[in-house]
Design a protein around this nucleic acid. Structure first.
Lengths: 343, 343
DNA sequence: AATCAATGCTCCATCGATTGAGCATCGATG
DNA sequence: CATCGATGCTCAATCGATGGAGCATTGATT
């Protein structure tokens, strides 16, 4: 198919200068808004603006940024785009960056440590002023790379030790969620028994804190959590499903209630529950650390914790705006979500 | 909190040249891999590489790109990050771009026509070589902007008339989906009756084609679709919910089955169904144009159509790789998904 | 000894936008 | 009429990386 051929050469300020019968510096100042300060007449400004429009001129950012001191580019790396939490982080980040006249660049690193590092280096090459490492497997490595390249970094979702970190209050969120699940057990099953904990990585900070909250809530409810019920099997749905299947196949007891450590793991859990038929028509009493609108609709009164993404990004940009962090780790309380309660 | 202060100045090839006792051009050629061609000794190359490592040197892309002829940057604009379809488009796009040594930049325009144009201009400023307009409200406008700036563009998901377009085969997908829903009606309700069509915008090409498939399938099943059952109320969940509520409140008949035109609209539909209680314990027979793992788990045997994102992006990159499109509109057949069938 | 190719570099113009410094011109003022 | 401030612009250096052209040096060949 023949589409209009690309123009051979891009219009530059020199082309516009020639067309307007003026100098490149006049054109530049008109187009970047400094023309009043530089005492360019309104008449010339208008002429240049019109010509730029006509010629479809777009400033060459490479040239412009090379000359300027600040790039106003902010970068973010994010593990995946496959769930609502990271999706809203990216969307909110872009919106808030634009509001401030910053140019956001985001890239997804698929939970691959090597790709995280490679992506960080690449962004530094583009002169990002800030790099937000979201859910990074090795945040301190990213911080070091940024520091040595003269850029600043922040950790989001998972904390690091060498840059300010903005994370959810995982302990409090998990504590509350566990209490709610246990209460639902009491109401629906007539008794409380230790819950199963499924999903996440035992090595990551969030899972650790959530486990701590999970255990504390058991203790405070007079229960002692069963260590064999704790399955931090990773985040992928298949892993959660395989973990449950393995337990089930081994003939071990299955719990009355479950704490699932992400919507992604919940996919696997619910799939296993339906497929195995272990719980019959009913679902086990469940709760999920993270939110998805369809989970609300799944029925079975699944409790959720929704991380407060707008508040987290307000904290991020407050650091970017001011250049300083009030404390090394900022914990944002997440929001309790009950079935249908968001309507 | 005091974190390590940023380095005042970034290391440049001139700094490395001085440290290595050589010239900037030697350093440059070592670092960009042309040193053999330029007959730099392996000894010097190794020394420079080591120094670059030690100093945390990162090439200044702005300077490098300014000098080079091609930027190897590819841009994409995407409406939202709030569903699996666009999420996987972005993730696949980034992965495939990286495989080719291209640098992907993606931005989300929140279905805002002004933001689409602004984002496109911004990307052109960064010298993107290709701009992929995904689900754009006015694709031809984007194409024109790109053409006049000497960049090439492609349309994805929604077609335009002035650049190659890669879209799902919406007619075939909707036809098949409608048939499946009607078959399920026959089986579960013992009879077929016209379905309701909920979601999407009447003005957009995809909704139009899906409606055409929807109607054709009715016709071929010996039914005439009820025009008052067609509710292209937009994509947001609240709009779908409001549309159903309005119909219900008006006392009009509700259908036995529904064709829902996106997972996002389905959120609203399922929410209304559960809230209104109109369908009692059962769900209406349903189908959804788009896929989400939780919908599979919702029960009620909701049929889905999953758009073939990998095939779509393979088509995109085949055009980028070769520079030419085999035809103006490439239609990719979507994939039928049955409840639990993906396990 | 002169010639020549190969080796290993360096020099410098260039990409396009920015910006401090500076040069005309003009009308007003003493 | 000389001076001055305001007005409206232009000049040229600069940002950092790149790559064509070219310059020494070395060793081999006639």
């Amino acid at each position: 198919m023949q589409f209009p051929p690309r123009q051979t050469k891009k219009t530059t300020i020199y082309d516009l200068a020639e067309l307007a019968g003026t100098s490149a510096s006049a054109v530049s100042s008109v187009l970047n808004g400094t023309w009043k300060k530089r005492r360019i007449s309104a008449k010339l400004a208008e002429k240049v603006t019109r010509l730029a429009q006509e010629q479809g001129y777009a400033v060459n950012m490479q040239a412009s940024l090379l000359r300027r001191e600040s790039s106003r580019i902010v970068g973010m790396i994010v593990p995946k785009y496959d769930n609502r939490y990271f999706g809203s982080i990216v969307e909110t980040f872009e919106t808030m960056a634009r509001e401030r006249g910053l140019f956001p660049i985001v890239t997804c690193t698929r939970r691959d440590p090597e790709l995280e590092v490679e992506a960080a280096r690449e962004m530094l090459g583009y002169q990002v002023e800030w790099l937000i490492a979201t859910g990074a497997t090795d945040p301190d490595r990213i911080t070091d790379i940024c520091t040595s390249a003269g850029a600043r970094s922040l950790n989001l979702d998972l904390p690091g030790s060498r840059a300010p970190s903005i994370i959810s209050d995982n302990f409090a969120g998990a504590y509350g969620l566990t209490r709610r699940i246990l209460d639902n057990c009491q109401q629906r099953l007539g008794q409380m028994s230790p819950l199963m904990f499924v999903g996440g990585r035992a090595s990551d900070h969030n899972t650790g804190e959530r486990l701590r909250g999970f255990k504390a809530a058991h203790q405070d409810a007079g229960l002692s959590p069963d260590p064999s019920f704790i399955l931090p099997c990773g985040y992928a749905p298949e892993k959660a499903e395989a973990a449950l299947e393995a337990r089930w196949a081994s003939g071990s007891a299955m719990p009355g209630g479950m704490f699932v450590n992400s919507t992604i793991s919940l996919e696997g859990v619910v799939h296993w529950i339906k497929r195995s038929g272990h719980y019959g028509q009913d679902m086990p009493v469940m709760g999920c650390f993270d939110w998805d609108p369809f989970v609300t609709l799944l029925g079975g009164g699944i409790e959720m914790v929704r991380q407060d993404v707008p508040a987290m990004l307000r904290a991020v940009f407050s650091i970017i705006d001011s250049g300083e962090a009030p404390e090394p780790i900022i914990k944002i309380p997440p929001i309790d979500m009950h079935e249908m309660a968001e309507a």
